[in-house]
């Protein structure tokens, strides 16, 4: 992830990138968890293979491949990835989580309107007019198009007052 790891030569002095080590650690941990929990599900029953057999095998694949990957990285560390734009990741993920939390409470139309306005006006710096038009079309417009056009019901507000005024 760092410029340092990009500049160092592979083979000799190079070190495994921290993000790669974290990844290998995470896959090993998931694999170990799967091995333990699938063993407790029962690998074999009197009728044949138990519910734990297939996941157990996959846990084994995950652990052994993570170990192999570590060996490969120690021998020849891979070039560091390009990295991510943390600002984009945080704003998109947080806004989606807030939207998901509010959708049942405020209803699809209101929560999606706010979500779109945030992405268009605050993040995208579009004009007020275009932001409002697109946000309205994407929230109220989509709600009616899906409800009446495609027969797909999007959520309405759990609050009676909001519900009464059409949200």
């Amino acid at each position: 992830m760092t410029t340092e790891s990009l500049m160092t030569k592979p083979e000799s002095a190079a070190r495994v990138a921290p993000s790669v080590l974290t990844g290998i650690g995470a896959f090993t941990a998931v694999g170990l968890y799967v091995l333990v929990s699938s063993a407790s599900l029962g690998l074999w029953t009197s009728l044949g293979p138990g519910p734990g057999l297939f996941p157990f095998a996959m846990g084994g694949v995950l652990v052994s491949m993570s170990a192999l990957w570590l060996v490969q990285e120690l021998r020849r560390p891979s070039a560091a990835a390009e990295g991510i734009d943390r600002g984009v990741v945080i704003s998109v993920v947080v806004s989606l989580v807030v939207l998901a939390l509010l959708m049942d409470l405020l209803g699809f139309q209101l929560s999606m309107f706010l979500f779109l306005l945030y992405h268009l006006k605050l993040r995208g710096q579009r004009t007020w007019l275009s932001s409002l038009i697109i946000a309205l079309a994407g929230s109220v417009g989509a709600f009616y198009a899906f409800n009446y056009g495609l027969n797909v019901a999007l959520p309405v507000s759990a609050f009676t007052p909001l519900n009464l005024i059409g949200f």
């Binding site: 779109l116 992405h119 999007l154 959520p155």
Partner: peptide, 25 residues
């Protein structure tokens, strides 16, 4: 920004309407 917002809109609708449950979002 407009394309991203609209794609996100479709993703949320797509995930929600499978089981009509916010959990899928």
């Amino acid at each position: 920004p407009i394309l991203t917002a609209l794609i996100l809109l479709f993703m949320v609708i797509g995930a929600y309407t499978i089981n009509f449950d916010v959990f899928d979002v």
